[in-house]
Write a protein that binds this DNA or RNA. Structure first.
Lengths: 113, 113
DNA sequence: GTTGCATGTAAGCAACTCCTTAATTAATGA
DNA sequence: TCATTAATTAAGGAGTTGCTTACATGCAAC
């Protein structure tokens, strides 16, 4: 029963690959099938499948099956934690900005850990 | 002459490890020697040295030698690009928040790339 | 049922990660 | 000069990543 890396590490690791970042960028346009997603890449389908698995493990995409197509859609929640970490480390002025961020997040009623 | 991964990938990859993230967090308190940095970790010095090399490669720290001590200090510039990427992908509400970010950044008169 | 399409899984391989211990470099100070 | 301290480099090993090709699964239309 080995325990994998923490959530934040999974997210940053998922983002540490240009192919995966582009997949996420393309998903901003809305849910997409794996085939459409794979098309622009000079890479086999299984390779894309594996990238999607990494993204799913990080919670950054959701896959739903309908007929023989799997539709992938973006999940941005994990990016909130990543963003919080990065902003927290971006110099003094940004620290003040974080406070504003948090204030606004309260107003928004955030549900993240 | 092999060409390594792009800068943004290097940054995210550097952040994808709890030890390295904690090193960066500790460096927020100001420049620190490798020895001080290594102390709280249950890990050999060479291991820390290698983590520092990863952080340096990503541009996240700077090392300066004085006497037999190497002092490490934080460089936040690479986080700006990482932040920009993450914010760009954080949903609609956050997009609006980005505008506020930019507005405030203008007020600040940002000097970053 | 059988064919065909969309996707996932399995197995294999080179390269990389993250740690270790041992040896090395470099500066200090008696 | 020699020992001490601070840190890095070297070598090696277990596990992971990122791709490949080949095979399996699952649904649909005939």
């Amino acid at each position: 029963m080995q325990q994998g890396p923490d959530e934040l590490s999974l997210v940053f690791q998922a983002l540490a690959d240009p192919t995966r970042r582009e997949i996420l960028s393309r998903l901003r346009g809305g849910p997409t099938t794996v085939g459409e997603l794979a098309e622009p890449f000079a890479m086999s389908r299984p390779a894309i499948s594996q990238h999607l698995k990494v993204l799913e493990r990080a919670g950054l995409i959701e896959r739903t099956a309908s007929a023989q197509w799997r539709t992938c859609s973006l999940r941005t929640e994990p990016l909130d934690e990543a963003s919080a970490w990065v902003e927290r480390h971006r110099g003094e002025w940004n620290a003040r900005f974080d406070q504003l961020d948090e204030r606004l997040r309260e107003m928004k009623g955030s549900t993240d850990a």
